[in-house]
Design a protein around this nucleic acid. Structure first.
Lengths: 148, 148
DNA sequence: ACGATAATGATATCCGTTCTCAGAGACGTG
DNA sequence: CACGTCTCTGAGAACGGATATCATTATCGT
């Protein structure tokens, strides 16, 4: 399924502009191996660790294109850094629990939550395009440590 | 109730540090009249429109203190600008619908949504301190206009 | 292989936010 | 009320993530 995302992302980016380039391929290849969100900087570092010489500007451009095509989900924890993760082509998506203490990030999904969001948006006449949910708090480990 | 928020905010800020200053008073007085979120810049402009000469740094400092005391809710729409709104002292809070097209912001609250979030956090061992929910999409007006 | 044109990478720029620091103001005391 | 102390304040510098610029490179159809 990782391969599938990479293939489809490369294909759809190519057909969007008629061109393909090394930087995009490198970003897509790296991103396809990730399962949770990373900042643009981390993606840049990861791509360079793969041995590709890619500029940070190209990373942002690739992420912007991927976002427009719905191939990537943009996540914002409110710390001034945008994060990105490959988006499930079937439309499934998850949200995030972030520990205020250690910074750990955990994905979660919840059907009742999704249903509530849909209902709210629809009730207000909105065609909901996207929604971001971030829950912040102290994770189990950190709470245990604070007690000790 | 506007007065109540202003009074309690001023009182709690004073007892937190033992001092009080003009900039904080001005920010609190302006913020107490708002009912939905504003950026630091907008707050700065609003305070100056009240005739107070306040530096942007003091606005950020006041907002930081208010946030730590739980008197203000920090809201992030993912556009790189932090927004702030007075927080209900009873703990009630709302979330936001943002129109991608015209930028309109609408508050909403939903009990089922809150319940789902609590359940998710608790189920993962988290002590949830806060959660942000932002729904983005096209509002009714903009959808009507796009059709025409 | 060639020409047109999109993609790339280095760097400059933008802009929101935070930091720094000298000066002003608030509070407790005599 | 005057004084000393210590916080608050405001102007501007610094910071950092994101975006814009632009000359160069690479890709694709012919």
């Amino acid at each position: 399924m990782v391969e599938a995302w990479i293939e489809s992302a490369l294909g759809r980016m190519r057909s969007a502009t008629g061109r393909s380039g090394g930087a995009r391929r490198a970003v897509v290849a790296f991103l396809g191996r990730q399962d949770c969100c990373l900042s643009a900087q981390e993606i840049h570092d990861g791509v360079r660790a793969d041995g590709e010489r890619v500029g940070i500007a190209s990373v942002y451009r690739a992420l912007e294109s991927l976002d427009e095509l719905g191939l990537v989900q943009r996540v914002d924890f409110g710390d001034g850094v945008a994060r990105f993760e490959p988006a499930d082509p079937r439309g499934d998506h998850h949200h995030h629990l972030v520990c205020d203490d250690c910074g750990k990030v955990e994905p979660f999904e919840d059907i009742a939550l999704e249903a509530a969001l849909e209902r709210v948006a629809g009730g207000r006449g909105y065609e909901a395009a996207a929604h971001d949910v971030v829950v912040r708090g102290a994770c189990e480990d950190c709470r245990a440590q604070l007690q000790a």
